[in-house]
Design a protein around this nucleic acid. Structure first.
Lengths: 230, 230
DNA sequence: GAGAAAAAGTGAACGAGTTCCAAATTTGAG
DNA sequence: CTCAAATTTGGAACTCGTTCACTTTTTCTC
């Protein structure tokens, strides 16, 4: 049984994190003073520093929560059924980007990324890099799954392709959170276009597939290698 | 003729920038106080703020110098002759990464990237984003050049491919400056592997080309589509 | 060349994150 | 119940980037 002291500790930590999450979201990261967080969490400033090394550390705790949920959603998607490489990857990307804005505002992401870049060796930086690595690995897993399902060409280096896709996605997400007035839809279609040049060339469609009846031609349709068998 | 005032201004600005560049490199960005820069440049703290909005602004001036030289080197490379898509792209990547460490230490890059992420709307952030955009465009230009030279398949979306390559490169460079003990060679070969999955599929080799005599088989050789004509 | 106006320089003061510490409080053990 | 250990507390002090009211320098005009 957890002693009273430990229960209080856990309670304080939760209060601090909750206060920080709310204030960061409402007043912005810079606009939130440590003193305000302390007030809201009903602890003293010094106590916050007992639980978190610094202000940025509070952010990583929130980021970690968010990314863990995103990884969960991603894993569920991978385990599901997939019609095509393109749609499976597009969907994973959409999951990543849409689910990344539940707890964190775009401004919070800016700061989190900045701190992770600036201080890669602090606990913050290490944890952040670890989350990124897990996301990248998950993209590779999706590609492996697609290969097993016969949707992806056998000779594809899934690690290379997965990293390429994740790095592009990550960079585009960075651009997205940096750019005011950029909608989720816009970034998703930009990413889809970038990925298409790769995906349509590593896709492995059954030769007997017939053109989908109701589909009209799109500017992206090409008399391309997408038609070849593997 | 330049008046006395303007000569003094130019002189002071140069002194400040030179002092900052040297101190940042020697003592690190955080380890360099504004007061120290002022001392070294023989001006007061306030004067620095007449020329640069803040500490980070000093960094962007150095970054801009560096990146402009990088862009020049890149342009010269593009104008030259190219044997293959793979080698032309690999070379451009190498130019970018190697030339990026002339004035800026890895730690300075960390801070520059962090500030650009954190403050995308300040002059710093805008200039940094502009430099990134020019680099991305240059990659696209290389691909267009290669297409004109008949080395790249006709149906390739060079904008999409260029952005994909640049975003991957940029992310890998970020990882590189964040990771101590990562050599330039290591990051270059990691990038080359990631790019290969795309490049070998958009390459357009003449069908009459014969196997290069002295070359031994490498694990990356595949009986792949790299042999097809376009 | 003298005085006024404009531009630029100056450094003490300020703000916010962080550290430190001695006193107060809480908890667990004998 | 009492003592010892662990934590919290609150505030003062520190650091460093940044600001601003004031001074100095330069230029322009008559």
């Amino acid at each position: 049984m957890m002693g009273l002291r430990e229960r209080h500790k856990a309670d304080r930590e939760r209060r601090i994190l909750k206060a920080a999450a709310r204030l960061f979201r409402n007043a912005g990261y810079d606009g939130t003073k440590m003193e305000r967080i302390a007030q809201t969490a009903r602890v003293s400033i010094g106590t916050i520093y007992n639980y978190y090394q610094n202000k940025g550390d509070l952010l990583v705790a929130i980021v970690a929560m968010e990314v863990n949920e995103v990884l969960g959603s991603g894993a569920r998607h991978i385990a599901g059924r997939h019609r095509s490489v393109q749609s499976a990857v597009d969907r994973l990307v959409a999951i990543y980007i849409e689910h990344s804005l539940v707890y964190l505002s775009e401004q919070m992401w800016q700061h989190a990324m900045a701190i992770a870049t600036q201080q890669p060796d602090t606990p913050f930086g290490v944890i952040y890099a670890g989350l990124d690595a897990r996301l990248a690995r998950q993209v590779c897993e999706l590609l492996d799954t697609l290969k097993s399902a016969g949707l992806l060409a056998e000779d594809v280096d899934t690690v290379a392709a997965g990293e390429l896709i994740f790095n592009n996605l990550n960079m585009m997400f960075t651009t997205f959170v940096k750019t005011e007035n950029m909608t989720v839809q816009e970034v998703l279609s930009a990413i889809a276009r970038q990925h298409r040049v790769l995906l349509e060339r590593i896709t492995c469609l059954p030769s007997r597939r017939r053109p989908t009846p109701g589909r009209t031609a799109s500017p992206y349709d090409r008399a391309s290698r997408a038609d070849r068998t593997c």
